[in-house]
Amino acid sequence: MHAQIVLFDGFDPLDVIAPYEVLYAGGAASGGAVEVELVSAEGPREVVSGAGGLTLRATAALDPERAGLIVVPGAAGRTGTPGEAPDEGAGGGRTPDEFLSVLLGRAVQTGLPALLKAAMDRPGPTVATVCGGSLVLGLAGLLAGRPATTHHLGLDTLAGTGARVIRARVVDDGDLVTSGGVTSGLDLGLHLLERELGPRVALAVEELFAYERRGIVWRDQGPEPRPL
Rank of each mutant, 00 (worst) to 15 (best):
A107F: 03
G43Q: 10
P73L: 14
A140I: 06
G133L: 12
G43M: 07
L56S: 07
L69S: 10
L115M: 10
G124R: 00
L135M: 11
V102F: 13
T59N: 00
L100Y: 15
S134I: 09
P96Q: 09
L100A: 14
T110L: 07
L104S: 00
V71H: 11
A85D: 14
S101M: 05
G124M: 11
A107V: 01
G68D: 15
A60R: 13
G141H: 04
L62K: 10
V72Y: 12
E46D: 15
G111W: 03
V48Y: 00
V71A: 08
S40Q: 08
L139S: 08
V48C: 01
G124D: 07
T126M: 11
F99S: 13
T59D: 10
G77Y: 02
D63E: 11
P64S: 14
P73I: 09
G111K: 00
A140N: 07
L142H: 11
T110Y: 01
M120S: 08
K117L: 10
V102G: 01
G93Y: 05
P147D: 01
T129S: 14
G92F: 07
L115R: 12
L139D: 11
L100C: 03
V72H: 11
E88P: 06
A144K: 15
P73E: 11
P123M: 04
A114C: 02
G133I: 04
G89Y: 07
P125F: 13
V108D: 06
K117D: 15
G43V: 12
A118D: 08
L139E: 14
V102Y: 04
V136C: 01
R146D: 02
P64K: 10
A148F: 12
T79F: 01
E98S: 00
R146S: 02
T129F: 03
Q109A: 15
G52L: 10
A114F: 05
V136M: 04
L143R: 10
L104W: 03
V127E: 02
A41G: 15
T59G: 15
E98Y: 05
R146Y: 03
P123A: 14
V127S: 02
S49N: 05
A128H: 02
A76N: 03
L104E: 09
L103Q: 15
V130L: 12
V108F: 05
P96Y: 05
A76Q: 03
G68N: 12
P44V: 01
S40V: 06
R78A: 14
G52Y: 13
V102P: 00
M120P: 08
D87W: 15
G93N: 06
G43I: 09
G80V: 04
V130A: 12
P82R: 14
G43P: 06
A119T: 01
P64G: 12
L139K: 13
P96T: 09
L137P: 05
G83E: 02
F99Y: 15
P64V: 09
D121G: 15
A144H: 08
E46Q: 14
V130K: 05
A51M: 14
